[in-house]
């Protein structure tokens, strides 16, 4: 299965991925969609850029690893989190907002959604208008890639 990987050597910490992620998950695809979706709004992206040590010279974008043996799915009390074809999805109809998954994810990649009642996480943009990870498409330095690397 193809996954999103980030190469910190080339991550510039520009945070474009966060904005394109937020836009994609609000149904947007284009630059003008972004203006409509994100203007005057604090974004809550499913990918987060960590600014690391070394005087901010290392940056790293983090999003769901789509683990083979995911803690979040194991800990879900309502069956809202499930794996389909390797991709971990959230069923917001089932989510009761207990946030156990938020606590168990070792990467901090499951987070409460804007309304605070359910969780959200990266679903690789497979079911939104973009169709493939928006963060990858818009990374200006090709630091984020979407590729098959076998079993991790």
């Amino acid at each position: 299965m193809k996954r999103v990987f980030v190469n910190e050597e080339w991550c510039l910490g520009c945070r474009l991925c966060e904005y394109w992620c937020a836009n994609a998950n609000l149904g947007g695809k284009t630059a003008s969609d972004m203006v409509r979706n994100l203007k005057g709004r604090k974004i809550n992206a499913r990918i987060r850029v960590e600014d690391g040590a070394n005087d901010g010279k290392i940056n790293f974008a983090v999003q769901c690893r789509h683990c083979y043996d995911p803690m979040c799915v194991k800990s879900c009390i309502s069956g809202a989190l499930s794996i389909s074809d390797g991709v971990i999805n959230v069923d917001t109809e089932k989510c009761v907002g207990c946030f156990t998954c938020v606590l168990t994810c070792p990467y901090g990649c499951v987070m409460p959604s804007d309304d605070g009642h359910v969780v959200q996480k990266c679903e690789l943009c497979l079911s939104n208008a973009v169709g493939s990870p928006a963060c990858v498409e818009h990374c200006p330095n090709h630091a984020i890639v979407y590729e098959e690397r076998g079993v991790l």
Binding site: L12, G13, C14, R15, Y19, M34, V35
Partner: peptide, 11 residues
């Protein structure tokens, strides 16, 4: 059009 993402500032 500006959404205050501050990418310009960072770059």
């Amino acid at each position: 059009k500006c959404i205050r993402c501050r990418v310009c500032e960072r770059q």
